[in-house]
């Protein structure tokens, strides 16, 4: 049990990052993490030891978030993601552009990018977390990347400029 607790604690930074990408706002994100952790504990018995804890916690977070959003019937997009950016001036500009662009994507696109591109989850696992078919993960991913590219088109990176 202490083992479980230790492993959950290890996942907290990743949960906070996922929550930040979902909500865009650090307070709302930590509220979401707290709700997720509470839910995880109350469902402890549903967790199968040996299965992927990160995927399980992410699934819970996704559900808590979706239910909350459905209840509020309001969805904020386009607000800047509350993320501090480091690095050199040039890197900062580039990263700022990509986080800005990310914030303008619909939440389901942000989510799939976080899971697949950032967390490097296999497609099937991302599909399980989001409770959508595999094909939906792929189509969202390809649309998400296309939008992100078109939003960062003004970027100075040659790699991005060449692409329509």
């Amino acid at each position: 049990m202490e083992e479980f607790e230790r492993r959950v604690t290890e996942c907290i930074p990743r949960l906070r990052r996922y929550a930040r990408v979902l909500t865009g706002n650090s307070t709302a994100a930590d509220d979401l993490v707290q709700d997720t952790l509470e839910r995880a504990w109350s469902r402890l018995r549903l967790w199968r030891p040996g299965s992927d804890l990160r995927a399980w916690l992410f699934t819970i977070m996704h559900n808590v978030h979706v239910n909350g959003v459905r209840r509020r019937r309001a969805e904020q997009t386009g607000e800047p993601l509350d993320i501090a950016i480091g690095g050199t001036q040039e890197q900062r500009l580039e990263l700022r552009d990509v986080t800005r662009a990310l914030a303008q994507l619909p939440p389901e696109y942000r989510e799939v990018l976080l899971l697949v591109a950032v967390e490097e989850m296999p497609y099937a696992q991302a599909a399980a977390v989001l409770d959508v078919p595999l094909g939906t993960v792929m189509s969202r991913l390809s649309r998400a990347r296309a939008q992100l590219l078109s939003l960062t088109n003004g970027d100075t990176t040659p790699g991005l400029r060449r692409v329509k």
């Binding site: 990052r17 993320i83 690095g87 580039e94 990263l95 976080l114 950032v118 990176t157 790699g159 060449r162």
Partner: peptide, 20 residues
């Protein structure tokens, strides 16, 4: 190439969050 670069950029932008 562009998709790869996006992955790198997204990770570079979001990885620092793990250190907070």
């Amino acid at each position: 190439e562009a998709y790869r670069r996006l992955n790198l950029l997204l990770r570079a932008a979001l990885d620092p969050l793990l250190e907070e």
